[in-house]
Design a protein around this nucleic acid. Structure first.
Length: 568
RNA sequence: CGGGGCGUAGCGCAGUUUGGUAGCGCAUCUCGCUUGGGACGAGAGGGUCGCAGGUUCGAAUCCUGUCGCUCCGACCA
């Protein structure tokens, strides 16, 4: 490809709306353009990257026995009615009617579609397992699309669905995909972690998210400094922290004027924050009060509280509800509440001794609270959020927190969809059984964005070689100098002939302009052709990532170029 | 859905307070000059000022409505 013919409009300035580095750079480098909120066109350079990522995904899916298919984007409502998700999905689903008034949606995902497809044809255990995938646009009418390709309404996703005859088969399929994902993101040049995740609304028993480490990420993860453990902050299971043993003192009520926050209480009573217990009040959809207690320096984890309390949804409690249950906002404890109030206490709180907690009376706290002795009728569970410094639940070493971008997830669905949609096969004994299913997604556009988010500097993108729009750009200093241009063209042809994905920047621009564009777009390697090249019969190689420059003799540069590319 | 901000040339913005017939930088086109890090000079093209209605002799500017974008939050996997 010659740059003079390439549709790659680069910009000096980024649009005002772009917040993330990756968003700005994708826009400035001419990779994408916006059509409307959350809807993007991929220009030639951007699409080349997408195709390279897709190809890596294909190769790894196929290596595990995946078979590529293509299902319709437009899906009939009936299959969604069957699974019950036509209602559940809500406003996030893009819906439409045809001329006869029949309802359809633009597929936000394809569990229903694949299940309805497969149940007609896969009838025997002998046909299992099956790993079936597609790479295709998905539609989710996000309440707030943002960050360019990170959260868009139309996005490219690889979704694979596994069908197994039993749970151990599913375990195997899951493992295959887990390993394939690890290879895919490694090949894409990403620094990532598979993290244990909450399986959320898609359902199922087991789930990992593949998260690219980046400060701008939307999800927060905890990871161990010693072992492989990593989990999303919502999911991370925590060990009980046992406080040092103490003699239990009798409980005592003390006046704590205006000390309605933990900070004020600890200062007023001169106790360490680890000796305090704080409350968070929620109500469920029916208005029922749910009080959660965690140690003063800990944060309550809503998801865990939800699971522990059995509620469907939680929202912050109204003051009146707290008062009605016998509590006093800012001065709450599980002691002396009215019967029937749901109280969830963090497991670590139960191990505290002679602690400080509210007295359920304005301006009063209890001291010398011993939860095991003093708390009655409470649910004890792990309900706090992980924080930096917590011990790893696997090995006990210190956990650290980081932010990340979720680029893929793997779910064990089990029989959730096969049951709902009555998808069965006959087993060895001729008995009908539900498929054990798994689903495995990768956001292709998001992977591109994440790669850029993780690989850039003040000059622009630094593409990992495997997903770069071109591996090498050949850049004559002065394209109007016929000798230089011819020299560059020869190099370009030689690179192409030896299988290297090269671009010739033959634009009649000044060298500075071309260099700036090369850096902005982020080709891993630039080969500069200058008058000196002609004189000494050599080429100059510049590595985008390191800025390193080297002279290579014209005769045998190809092997060295290949060798260097291997490292990028 | 709540709260803030914004819609003026492809991009970034000024002009709006105090109505008087639209401007700057970048980009684009032509010519000259220049060619190792976004040069310079001269010239040119490009905007129903988001849309609709109203006030006015006159509206980018004031009023009403509407659409869209965007940020924070809530919601959601």
């Amino acid at each position: 490809m010659k740059a003079s013919q390439l549709y790659a409009p680069t910009l000096r300035e980024s649009p005002a709306e772009a917040e993330l580095i990756s968003h700005k750079l994708m826009f400035r480098a001419g990779l994408i353009r916006k059509a409307a909120g959350g809807l993007y066109s991929y220009l030639p350079l951007g699409w080349r990257v997408i195709k390279k990522i897709s190809q890596i995904i294909r190769e790894e899916m196929d290596a595990e026995g995946g078979q590529e298919i293509m299902m319709p984007i437009v899906q009939p409502s009936e299959i969604w009615q069957e699974s019950g998700r036509w209602q559940v999905y809500g406003d996030e689903m893009m819906r439409m009617r045809d001329r006869h008034g029949r309802e359809f949606c633009l597929g936000p995902t394809h569990e229903e579609m694949i299940t309805s497809l497969v149940r007609a044809e896969l009838r025997s255990y002998k046909q299992l397992p099956q790993l079936i995938y597609q790479i295709q646009n998905k539609y989710r009418d996000e309440i707030r699309p943002r960050f360019g390709l990170m959260r868009s309404r139309e996005f490219i996703m690889k979704d694979l669905y596994s069908f197994d005859k039993d749970e151990s088969g599913l375990d195997e399929s899951y493992k295959k995909m887990f390993d394939a994902y690890t290879r895919i993101f490694t090949r894409c040049g990403l620094e990532f972690r598979p993290v244990e995740a909450d399986s959320g609304a898609i359902g199922g028993s087991n789930s990992h998210e593949f998260t690219v480490l980046a400060q701008s990420g939307e999800s927060s993860i905890a990871f161990c400094t010693n072992c492989d453990f990593a989990a999303s902050d919502e999911k991370a299971e925590l060990k009980i922290i046992i406080a040092p043993a103490e003699d239990e003192k009798p409980i005592e009520k003390v006046e704590t004027p205006d000390a309605h926050t933990i900070e004020l209480v600890k200062n007023f009573l001169q106790v360490p924050i680890e000796k305090t217990i704080k409350a968070v009040a929620f109500q469920d959809d029916d208005g029922k009060l749910i009080l959660a207690f965690v140690r003063g320096d800990h944060e309550a984890n809503e998801i865990k509280i939800l699971n522990a309390s059995g509620a469907m949804h939680l929202h912050m409690a109204e003051e009146s509800a707290i008062v009605a249950a016998g509590g006093s906002p800012g001065f709450m404890s599980p002691i002396g509440l009215k019967d029937g109030t749901i109280v969830v206490v963090d497991q670590t709180v139960m191990e505290m001794h002679n602690a400080v907690a509210g007295a359920n009376e304005k301006n009063f706290h209890f001291i010398n609270v011993n939860p095991k002795r003093d708390f009655k009728n409470v649910i004890v569970a792990d309900i706090r959020k992980v924080q930096a410094g917590d011990p790893c639940p696997h090995c006990g070493h210190e956990l650290k927190m980081t932010r990340g971008i979720e680029v893929g997830q793997v779910f064990k669905l089990g029989t959730k969809y096969s049951k709902a949609m009555n998808a069965t096969f006959l087993d060895e004994n001729g008995k009908a059984k539900f498929f054990q299913m798994g689903c495995y997604g990768i956001g292709v556009g998001r992977t591109m964005a994440a790669a850029i988010e993780q690989n850039s500097d003040e000059h622009g993108i630094i593409f990992p070689r495997n997903i770069a729009p071109f591996e090498v750009v050949v850049c004559p200093i002065n394209s109007k100098d016929q000798a230089q241009l011819e020299f560059a063209e020869k190099i370009y042809e030689e690179l192409k002939n030896s299988g290297i994905d090269a671009l010739l920047d033959d634009r009649p621009e000044r060298a500075g302009v071309k260099f700036k564009d090369c850096d902005l777009i982020g080709y891993p390697m630039r080969i500069t052709i200058s008058p000196k090249s002609l004189e000494t019969n050599s080429i100059e190689v510049k590595i985008r990532k390191s800025g390193e420059i080297s002279e290579l003799p014209r005769d045998n540069y190809l092997d060295q170029v290949k060798k260097i590319l291997e490292t990028l």
